[in-house]
């Protein structure tokens, strides 16, 4: 069953003569439980695609259906609500808040839910255990290694149990060993049922995914 379906999606930036088409007539579907790798050169529209799926950006044309429901995002707040309920995002630069501890950075994803404080704490600890960073829970991001930061970012992305995990170059800032470690975690999450889409330049990473698509200009 398709988790989401993009049909005839077009997106361009700029105006008039400076208008540059990034995506043109793109059709794509992501099945539930799938681990999709999206490859392509710089400027091919990988991040644009991720932003459209995440509700950060809007397509100029085309239809976006998520769980059989058309996604119509008219305001920034619609996108925020959509992400909160359905999407987890991991980015290359981790996007952690340096003034919050590892525990708070992970728990942050639950602040907008109706969970009690106890439930939040329990769920956060569960994730920290899962990602093997419980011992770092009181540490702050500047005290962490790249791999530990990315685990924390993954923790924040999955703590709400999103239907789809979007990762934009999740290992781009990491060394090979740490990269393998993070991919092991993502693969494990996928096997446990998390659908994900990974934007990458790295063919080794793409090979570990269940499906690979390449965007061309």
């Amino acid at each position: 069953m398709a988790l989401l379906k993009l049909t005839n999606i077009s997106k361009s930036y700029g105006k008039d003569e400076r208008k540059t088409a990034v995506l043109e007539g793109l059709d794509i579907a992501i099945e539930e439980g799938e681990m999709l790798a999206v490859m392509g050169k710089s400027g091919s529209g990988k991040t644009t695609l991720l932003n459209i799926i995440a509700g950060i950006d809007y397509p100029d044309k085309g239809e976006y259906i998520f769980l059989d429901t058309p996604v119509l995002l008219r305001k920034t707040s619609d996108g925020v609500r959509f992400r909160r309920n359905q999407i987890g995002i991991i980015v290359q630069h981790f996007a952690l808040i340096n003034d919050f501890s590892v525990c708070e950075n992970v728990e942050m994803g639950l602040w907008e839910t109706k969970m009690s404080r106890k439930e939040r704490r329990s769920r956060t600890m569960e994730i920290l255990d899962q990602l093997e960073i419980r011992t770092l829970s009181d540490h702050y991001p500047p005290e962490l290694s790249g791999g530990e930061k990315q685990r924390t970012a993954i923790g924040r992305a999955i703590v709400t149990k999103p239907r789809l995990l979007l990762a934009d170059e999740p290992t781009g800032a990491l060394d090979n060993l740490t990269e393998q470690n993070i991919m092991d975690i993502l693969t494990k999450l996928n096997k446990e049922g998390t659908t994900m889409m990974i934007i990458t330049h790295d063919e080794d990473i793409a090979r570990r995914c269940t499906r690979v698509i390449e965007l061309k200009k």
Binding site: S77, V80, R84, W111, E112
Partner: peptide, 15 residues
């Protein structure tokens, strides 16, 4: 700025 964007990314509304 980046902190606010992180909040928005993780589902905290702008208001």
């Amino acid at each position: 700025y980046s902190t606010h964007c992180t909040f928005l990314l993780s589902g905290t509304p702008l208001w």
